[in-house]
Amino acid sequence: MRVKSIILAAALSAVLAGCSTVGLGPMQVFSNDYGARTDAGYALPRIPIEKVPYKYRRQIVRYETSEKPGTIIVDTNQKFLYFVLDNGKAVRYGIGVGREGFEWHGTARIALKREWPTWTPPGAMIKRQPELAKWRNGMPPGLSNPLGARAMYLFNKGGDSGYRLHGSPEWNSIGHAMSSGCIRLMNQDIIDLYDRAEVGAKVIVM
C-alpha cells in the first residue's frame, strides 16, 4: 500500500508540474511553457494554452522511425509535426496546415533560418487578396507578422519550394487547415523547434 501511495504521489506531482510520464501516453508535456516572454525585444503574449486541445501542446512522445535524429516529419492529416530524437522518441508539436487546394507533400531541407523574419506575400497571393499589395516589398517583423517569431525556409531539388515552417500569432489556428500551404506553429513552439533544428535538416511532409 505504501508503494502505491508513493507512485500516486509522484504521478500527481508530475502532472502538476505540467508534464506526465504515466502509462502509454506522452512522456513529457510542456503545458507550462507558453507564458509571456520578451524575445529579441518583442513582447510575446501568453498563449491561453488551456484553450488549446491537449494533444496539440508540445510533448515528447514515443515515435518509431528509420529516419535519423534531427529529421522533421510533418503529418498533415493528424496536424502534428515530429522532431525526431534518439531512442524511439520525438518532440511532437501541434500545427496548422494548408487549406483545401493549398496542401502539399514531399521531402525538402531547411536551407535558411530567420528570427523575426520579414514576410513578403507571393504574387499569386496578392492577386487573390489585393489588399496585401502594400506588403509587396515585405512586411516588417513584429507581433502581427504572419511568419511569427521564427521561420525556416524549405528548399528541394528545384530550389526554394515557397513553403515555410513558421510561427503564428494565431494560436487558435493550430489543429486546422487554413493556411496557404505553409506549416504554422504557435510562436512559443516555433522558437523551441528553431533552437533544435539545424540548417540542412531533412523535412518530410506526409
Rank of each mutant, 00 (worst) to 15 (best):
K4W: 07
S5V: 12
I6Q: 15
I7D: 11
V15G: 07
L16N: 07
A17S: 14
G18D: 06
V22D: 09
G25D: 12
V29S: 12
N32P: 04
Y34W: 00
A36I: 03
A40T: 05
A40P: 00
G41I: 04
Y42K: 14
P45T: 06
I47A: 02
E50Y: 02
E50N: 09
V52E: 05
Y54C: 05
Y54A: 15
K55V: 09
Y56T: 14
Q59K: 13
I60N: 11
Y63F: 03
T71W: 00
V74P: 00
V74Q: 01
D75S: 07
T76C: 03
Y82T: 15
F83A: 14
V84P: 01
L85K: 15
L85Q: 15
D86L: 05
V91F: 09
G94A: 10
G106C: 03
A108M: 06
A111L: 01
L112A: 05
W116Q: 08
P117Q: 04
P117L: 02
T118R: 03
W119E: 09
P122I: 07
P122Q: 10
M125Y: 08
Q129H: 11
P130D: 06
L132P: 14
G138E: 05
L143K: 04
G148C: 04
Y153K: 05
Y153L: 02
N156L: 06
G158E: 14
L165C: 08
S168P: 14
S168L: 08
N172E: 11
S173D: 13
I174H: 07
I174Q: 09
M178K: 13
S180W: 04
G181T: 09
I183R: 03
I183P: 10
L185A: 11
I190A: 10
A197K: 10
E198W: 00
V199W: 00
G200H: 01
G200N: 04
K202R: 13
V203R: 01
